[in-house]
C-alpha cells in the first residue's frame, strides 16, 4: 500500500555541501554508471551521439549565479554555486501517496523511497507530484526511475566496507557529499547539519525532505589586488627620435597631455 509509514527507524539520506561542491559532475557519472549496471532497469539514453541527446539520470548538477545586494552602495561580486540534486527521500513523500499501483513505497526500516519496477505502469503521476524533479520516466523501459540511495551498495557485504555508501558520495573528489542517518542526532551528518545550518529545499511544499543542503560559507573580503601594481607601471618612458619629438610637440600644444 502507498500509505506512508508514520515513522521510520532510520532516516538515511544525503547532506550536500554547496560550499565545497566544485561542479565536476563526477557524482552524476558514477550514479549513472552504478545504477545502469546494477539494480533495476538500466538508465537509457536516446540519440546519445547527436545534437539532440537526452537520457535518464537520477542525479543532476545545476549551476546558479547568486547576486548579493549592494553593500554600502558598492556592488558585490556574484557567486557561482554548483547545485547537485537527486531524490530527497522525503518524510511526507507526495510521490508515494499518488501512486495508483503501489509500485512506489517508503521503507519503514530506513526511510528510503523506492519504486518496484514490476508494478510500475509508467503513468508519470509521481513525477508530477514531486516538486524537485527527482523522478524521471525512462523512455526505453517505460518505468519510473529514481535515486535508490544505492540500496544495493550500502547494505552489500560483498563490497569492502569503505564502498558501502552511495556511489555519488564515494566518488565525490571534493568531499561535498555526506551519507548517514539523519534520525540519529549523534551521527556525523546530523552534527554537520546542526553546525553548518543545513536547510530543506522548498520547505513550503510540506514534503519534509530527509536530504539537507549546507549553505555556502560567507566569502572573505576582497583582497587588495593592486598590491603589485606600482611595480607593473610601464617603464619605457624614454622614447627616442621622431616619436620623442612628436610626444613633446603634442604636449606643448594648448591642452596637451604632459
Amino acid at each position: 500500500m502507498t500509505e506512508l509509514p508514520t515513522s521510520t527507524a532510520k532516516k538515511l539520506g544525503l547532506v550536500i555541501d554547496l560550499d565545497t561542491c566544485v561542479g565536476c559532475h563526477a557524482c552524476v557519472i558514477s550514479c549513472k554508471g552504478w545504477n545502469t549496471e546494477n539494480y533495476g532497469a538500466p538508465l537509457s539514453d536516446q540519440n546519445a551521439y547527436s545534437g539532440a541527446a537526452s537520457g535518464t539520470f537520477l542525479n543532476r548538477v545545476h549551476s546558479y549565479e547568486v547576486q548579493p545586494p549592494m553593500l554600502r552602495d558598492a556592488p558585490q561580486p556574484a557567486q557561482l554555486i554548483h547545485f547537485p540534486k537527486s531524490c530527497l527521500h522525503c518524510e511526507d513523500a507526495p510521490c508515494v501517496t499518488v501512486c495508483p499501483t503501489g509500485a512506489s513505497y517508503k521503507r519503514v526500516e530506513d526511510g528510503i523511497v523506492l519504486v518496484n519496477e514490476q508494478d510500475c505502469i509508467g503513468c508519470g503521476l509521481c513525477a508530477w507530484a514531486c516538486p524537485y524533479g527527482a523522478r524521471e520516466l525512462d523512455a526505453k523501459e517505460g518505468v519510473m526511475k529514481k535515486c535508490t540511495l544505492c540500496v544495493d551498495r550500502i547494505y552489500n557485504e560483498n563490497l569492502p566496507e569503505e564502498d558501502r555508501q552511495p556511489a555519488c558520495v564515494r566518488t565525490c573528489p571534493a568531499g561535498a557529499r555526506h551519507f548517514g542517518d539523519l534520525a540519529d542526532e549523534t551521527s556525523d551528518v546530523s552534527i554537520l547539519v546542526a553546525e553548518r545550518g543545513g536547510f530543506d529545499l522548498m520547505p513550503e511544499q510540506g514534503t519534509k525532505p530527509t536530504n539537507k543542503y549546507l549553505p555556502p560559507r560567507p566569502k572573505d573580503a576582497e583582497p587588495e589586488y593592486d598590491i603589485l601594481a606600482p611595480y607593473l607601471e610601464p617603464i619605457a618612458n624614454d622614447s627616442q627620435g621622431f616619436v620623442s619629438w612628436l610626444d613633446k610637440a603634442l604636449s606643448a600644444l594648448p591642452g596637451g597631455a604632459k
Binding site: 554547496l18 545545476h62 549551476s63 546558479y64 549565479e65 547568486v66 547576486q67 548579493p68 545586494p69 558585490q76 556574484a78 557567486q79 554555486i81 547545485f83 516538486p131 536547510f199 530543506d200 529545499l201 522548498m202 520547505p203 513550503e204 543542503y213 549553505p215 555556502p216
Partner: peptide, 13 residues
C-alpha cells in the same frame, strides 16, 4: 526557496 540560496541574494540559473 527552491535552491535555499535566497539569503545570499537573487538567484539566476
Amino acid at each position: 526557496s527552491a535552491t535555499g540560496l535566497g539569503h545570499i541574494g537573487s538567484v539566476r540559473a
